[in-house]
Amino acid sequence: MRLSSDALRLILPVLALAVLLGTVFWLRPNTMGYTGLHLLFKLALPIALATLSQMVILAVNDIDLSTGPFVSFVTCVTATFLVDTPALGVLILLAAIAAYAALGMIIAWRQLPAIVVTLGMSFVWSGLAVLMLPSPGGTAPAWIAALTGWRPPLVPFGVLSTVVVMVLAHLLIMRSTLGVLIRGIGGNERSVARAGWSVLRARGIAYAIAGAFGVLSGMSLTGIMTSGDANMAVNYTLLSIAGAILGGCEFMGGKVSPIGAVFGAATLLLATSVFTFLRVPPDWQIGAQGMILIAVLALRIALGRGEASR
């Protein structure tokens, strides 16, 4: 049986999630049900969205070190302005997406290293978030709280919404012209330019999409956590990179997979549950997460070698 490299890229994250889910079910059989899955995957949507945001940046061969602070910043906007003055709140969020687009274009125009620019932006977002909400608080807008608190029949919201987002992201990145263009920039920027496309514009659009995923991540996180906090999701930066890489994305070459990224994010989310159930001390948990990442990467390289020698 011959598998395409795309399918191969997907097998590992799916397998990793299946193994972890199986472990959780085996350790705690009571999680096998609506309530159990609801609690296990409650935070899946914001993490998946943040990982998709990171993935779009990875697709154009850049890396975003401001994902976590940006998502935290969005929770502060959502918990304050979007409640009191919805119009202004929407305006701020749109401006934030525009800022992302501008960043992408500046990085392309001046040939700046994205890792430095986004590292700088992480402090800007954190600063703005603290100015907006000096101490944690605010409330989630009623409609977001209602949406994230919705209990659909049969499948919990966390699972359902993540699957929906995954499918939409797959269509956008893997099936649309725009998606091909963005991945093309990661693959070979010069040939895209030669074909008559504006690289500057395409990079701006890619960053805008990443910003939009970040905004959605922050909004859904606010709904789930019921309030905003300037430090709420700072760890999302590393989680999103790890999730995307775990899901088969690569730092170079525009090789990304939205489905893989979502599975990777869910795997890391589930890993903390497994560690808690196994009573792994917290100091070891980060290390254990790293071990999962290394194990999956090692497996991927091993499989990749097999593929190359065929």
Partner: peptide, 18 residues
Amino acid sequence: AENQATEQAAQIQNMILE
């Protein structure tokens, strides 16, 4: 491990499951 509200929320959800 990281003094994060999201992490602690997930921890509390695991405790509910426990």
